[in-house]
Simulated scan of single mutants.
Amino acid sequence: MDPVTERFMPERFDRAGVSRPVHRVDEEASLGHLALVLAHRLRGLVAGIEGYTDLLIDSLPTREQRDLAFRILESTVRIERILADLQRYSEPVEPVFSRVGLRDVLENLLAAVDEADLERIRFEVPPHGHLFFMADPVLLRQALLVLLQNALDATRSGGDVRFRVIPDPPNEVIRFEVHNDGRIDEEEAESKVFMPFFTTKAHNLGVGLCIGRRIAEAHGGRLELAANGAESGICFVLTLPLAGPGTEGNRSGLRPGSA
């Protein structure tokens, strides 16, 4: 792209044909490279800590000392989870599209959620599950899991999470709404929730929603914070075109059929 075009058309297109602002593309690419380097370097250090701690445990004379060593191992497990998030953030989002069934999407999603968490989620889905649209089923599940986990973490004790699926053939989209009774309280949090590494939780790296938005945009869709209030609670909405990005009309066949 020549300098004049880049100045007056400050967008780039990803491999799915979805336009994204240049500054966001460059910033995410730089952060992604940094995340990849950090994950690679730190993973080796963590492996060394784990190995030496294992050797140390066998030589410790008292139970109290061994318990302290086990706490070191527990901490390395948490570090490895953070490194896994860094790795996911550094990877490019490149969907492999196929005609997916809503029933299969939901079954795969349910299989990935812990049983204890399932009891806290109310699912509201169309009565006919034989609906089809174009998506990458693996990436779609990842994005939906991010929204569910985010909602579960934000929900007050005893509160429920509501997961709604709303097919909208007239507008050629399908919407996934995830609602909880929490609220984003931090100042300017609404404008920051999709920024990489922004989080209000000590155990969270803050890349999940950013990855979810990238997945949505790679599908030609969007991920939005639709509600955030004391009475309304928090609601994120993932909207995807039925026919996939860069297509005209509803070619996905979102209609009743056999699985």
Rank of each mutant, 00 (worst) to 15 (best):
G17I: 00
Q142R: 14
T200G: 11
E27M: 09
Q142S: 13
E172F: 00
N204A: 15
V105D: 07
S232M: 07
V46F: 08
L73G: 09
G257H: 03
P169E: 12
R141M: 04
V113Y: 07
V93C: 02
P127Q: 11
R41F: 14
S30E: 13
P126F: 09
E187P: 00
A243G: 15
D67I: 12
G158Y: 02
A84I: 03
P10H: 06
A259F: 14
V113W: 05
N171C: 01
L110I: 07
M9V: 07
V18I: 03
R81E: 06
N180L: 08
V146H: 00
D114Y: 05
A154P: 01
I79C: 09
P10S: 01
G206D: 04
V4E: 06
P245Q: 10
R213I: 04
V22I: 14
D168G: 01
V96T: 09
V161F: 08
I174F: 04
D58Y: 11
T62A: 08
L223I: 12
P92L: 11
A226S: 10
P127W: 03
R15I: 06
C210H: 12
R183G: 14
T200L: 12
V165D: 02
L209A: 10
E224L: 13
A230M: 10
P127F: 08
E188Y: 11
G182Y: 09
V93I: 15
G51A: 13
D67P: 01
K192M: 14
H33G: 02
L131I: 00
N171F: 00
E107Y: 02
P137H: 03
R222F: 12
T200K: 09
L110N: 07
D104R: 14
G229K: 09
R183A: 11
G257W: 02
A116L: 14
D2T: 07
V113G: 09
V77R: 04
P3Q: 07
L140N: 00
R81W: 06
L106M: 14
V237F: 09
A112E: 15
A230W: 06
A47K: 12
T239K: 04
R255A: 15
F194M: 00
L109W: 05
A143K: 00
G233W: 11
L34K: 08
E91A: 12
L145Y: 10
P3I: 00
D153I: 13
E124G: 05
R120G: 06
D181C: 05
L147D: 02
